[in-house]
């Protein structure tokens, strides 16, 4: 009974099918434990966790410098900025927009810096569905290589106030 004190000397090793089940479950846990680090090195979609602390106002200055020197156009009133291949790209999240629109070349690698000017936001790229947390005071650096051309909506997926659902942006990948 589970509601009465057990008989004395209740501690003994599992036997029979119970033992087999625990063995199998433990084995599976070991496989899973090894799979995650293995896939971190083997798989292609991982964040190294590279991040720096940054004052939000200084991040905003850097974003503006980046836009001023890399602007290639405008969409819906938002500047489009295209960094040189291998270069740094900056994306600023704030209530309730992403700034600027980024343009990349397929197959090139970029260092994408993301931070927030006010509160916490989320960075979600559709439809490939990649999601990262964006914190004020932290410059989150993602090394990315676009593998498909097209237009990819960005969406905020961390609650950030009444305009949260309207906080969108865009990444354009050209051939």
């Amino acid at each position: 009974m589970s509601i009465e004190s057990p008989a004395k000397n209740w501690l003994h090793a599992p036997t029979g099918t119970e033992r087999a089940w625990i063995g199998l479950a433990l084995l599976w846990c070991i496989v899973l434990t090894l799979a995650m680090p293995y896939w971190h090195f083997k798989g292609k979609q991982n964040s190294t966790g590279e991040a720096y602390t940054v004052e939000p106002t200084r991040f905003a200055d850097r974003v503006q410098q980046f836009v001023d020197s890399n602007k290639v156009g405008e969409v819906n009133g938002t500047p489009i900025a295209e960094p040189p291949p291998g270069g740094d790209a900056y994306l600023q999240a704030q209530m309730w927009r992403f700034y600027p629109v980024l343009q990349f070349k397929k197959g090139q690698t970029y260092r994408l810096h993301i931070s927030s000017l006010d509160i916490q936001h989320g960075f979600a790229v559709l439809p490939i569905n990649m999601n990262f947390q964006v914190l004020p005071g932290y410059d989150h650096v993602l090394t990315i290589t676009p593998t498909m051309a097209g237009e990819f909506p960005i969406l905020c997926n961390e609650f950030c106030g009444i305009g949260h659902h309207q906080m969108t942006g865009r990444i354009i990948v050209t051939e």
């Binding site: 969409v75 819906n76 009133g77 938002t78 927009r97 629109v101 989320g122 979600a124 559709l126 439809p127 569905n129 909506p153 960005i154 969406l155 905020c156 997926n157 961390e158 609650f159 949260h164 659902h165 309207q166 906080m167 969108t168 942006g169 865009r170």
Partner: peptide, 24 residues
């Protein structure tokens, strides 16, 4: 969610947003 629909969003269509969003 597996199509990327956000967990705490009032409007899945993001109507009125500067850059439109569409899902499957």
């Amino acid at each position: 969610g597996s199509y990327g629909v956000s967990r705490r969003s009032w409007d899945v269509e993001a109507s009125g947003a500067l850059h439109p969003v569409s899902y499957d």
